[in-house]
Amino acid sequence: MKTRIKELRARYDMTQDDLARKIGVRRETILFIENGKYIPSLKLAHDIAKVLKITVDELFIFEDD
């Protein structure tokens, strides 16, 4: 599973730390999600999508899509 978090962060000129602080998680969590090493809960995915002004469905790219 891949994510568009990095791309969207760049669009909004946001660092991993900025995003992490807005959501209330550690920076490492964002790093691991971006690298596909951690699958977030639906709640966290929703929070990230909300900050990045996108839907959860558009935020993640599944391999079989």
Binding site: V25, R26, T29, P40
Partner: peptide, 10 residues
């Protein structure tokens, strides 16, 4: 320092 203590992944 503002790091959340109850992080989901942690």
């Amino acid at each position: 320092s503002g790091i959340p203590s109850e992080d989901e992944r942690s």
